[in-house]
Simulated scan of single mutants.
Amino acid sequence: MGLFSELKLAVPWGHIAAKAWGPQQGHPVLCLHGWLDNANSFDQLIPLLPKDFHYIAMDFGGHGLSSHYSPGFPYYHQNFVSEIRRVVAALKWNRFSLLGHSFGGTVGGMFSCIFPEMVDKLILLDSSPFALDSNEMENMLTYKRRAIEHTLQVEASKKPSSVVSPEEMLRGFLKNNSHVSEECGKLLLQRGTTRVATGLVLNRDRRIAWPEHSFDFVSREFFAQSVKKLQARVLLIKAIQGFYDVRRENDTNKEPLLFTVDTLKSVLKERFQFVEVPGNHYVHMNQPQQVASVISSFLQSKDRVPARL
């Protein structure tokens, strides 16, 4: 399972890059990375998972080795959800499991509610099927305005991407991502940067700046109604030292998580499993053994919910 192959899947604006592990005839699992991360975020975890599954970790558009969106085409949450549909169409998958970390979990969660017949299992790593508005209602319009202004500003700017030394790049990355170990930082930068003559440049699209610009924050009523559509079994793994809030400002407030867990439990009943593990937001990279056995048991459980006729 240490071996993997690289894929390039055609989309109208270029390609989606992905990494594949395991036998093609194995049950498919699509792995979705977090905000500003890339497919390498699963390199430590997938070798510890069952060998008879077929895992594909994709780079969302504008991340990793995937093409940037065309000028004028914004990075909205719905577009990332659409990317999943494009990828599985290219792979000819009709039914598969989803494994999403952080932002990848909210994108995968929305996909699983919109296309419930396609997803048999949904695994959320320190994530939620949707981002709850909780304390965000008054900020929504501000976020939308900032997102539009930032996109226009970057598109108008002729400034080339910053070139920095590998050491400086790693230092800056670890400063902005306090939950990532140095080893894992190097792994993400390996796929997230390109070497040029004088150093490294980031691969990601500069129009992608803040998660709140691309998250679709939803009301509790919308959340409760949407999860009723799920046909998947759902495993939510919460890292005890992980994040609770997208913007990190209200990070001690665990009430939205409790609402999420209670709602999923109430709606899905025995199809929902909640597990807390020691570790931080990047536990799947820093200490993958903490989550590997839980995920493996969940993937191997035979009580897959049959597709509705």
Rank of each mutant, 00 (worst) to 15 (best):
S82R: 11
E138I: 11
G199F: 10
D205S: 02
Q241K: 03
V294F: 13
R95G: 06
G104Y: 04
Q300R: 13
E138A: 12
R220N: 07
H77I: 03
K302G: 15
L9W: 08
N177M: 03
R95E: 03
Y143W: 02
V227K: 03
P256A: 05
H15L: 06
K175H: 15
S296T: 12
R171T: 13
N176D: 14
P47G: 00
Q241P: 02
L170H: 02
A224I: 07
A17Q: 05
S157P: 05
Y75R: 07
K186N: 09
A209C: 13
I208E: 05
E212P: 02
R204C: 05
P12F: 06
S67M: 09
S82H: 10
E83N: 10
I295W: 06
M140K: 09
G100S: 05
K159T: 13
G72R: 00
V81A: 08
V119T: 11
S178Q: 14
G72N: 03
L170I: 01
R191H: 13
S67L: 08
T260S: 00
L309S: 12
A57M: 06
V29I: 10
F217T: 09
L152E: 14
V275C: 01
E221P: 03
E117M: 05
L48P: 00
S41I: 00
L235H: 04
F217E: 07
V201A: 07
M140T: 07
S266E: 12
Q25S: 15
R271S: 11
F73K: 08
L30T: 01
L200R: 01
G199M: 10
H27Y: 15
F298K: 01
L49G: 06
P256N: 01
I208Q: 05
V88H: 04
T142W: 09
S157I: 00
S219E: 08
E255F: 05
S161T: 12
N176V: 10
T194H: 11
S66C: 01
Q25D: 14
K228G: 00
P160Q: 02
I240E: 13
Q44K: 15
V164A: 10
L309G: 11
F60L: 12
A292G: 06
L132S: 12
N253M: 03
P50H: 09
S70P: 04
H213R: 00
G199R: 09
K265C: 13
G199N: 09
G104D: 01
K8H: 15
F60M: 09
D262M: 00
R271M: 02
R271G: 08
Y76Q: 14
R146V: 06
A57W: 05
H15N: 12
P116H: 04
N250D: 13
E117Q: 12
I114H: 14
G109C: 03
K265Q: 15
F259I: 05
I240N: 00
Q289A: 13
R204W: 12
M58V: 15
S214R: 06
Q225H: 10
L187N: 12
I148D: 11
V154C: 08
N280H: 03
M58L: 14
H27I: 11
F259K: 05
P116G: 08
N38H: 04
L235R: 09
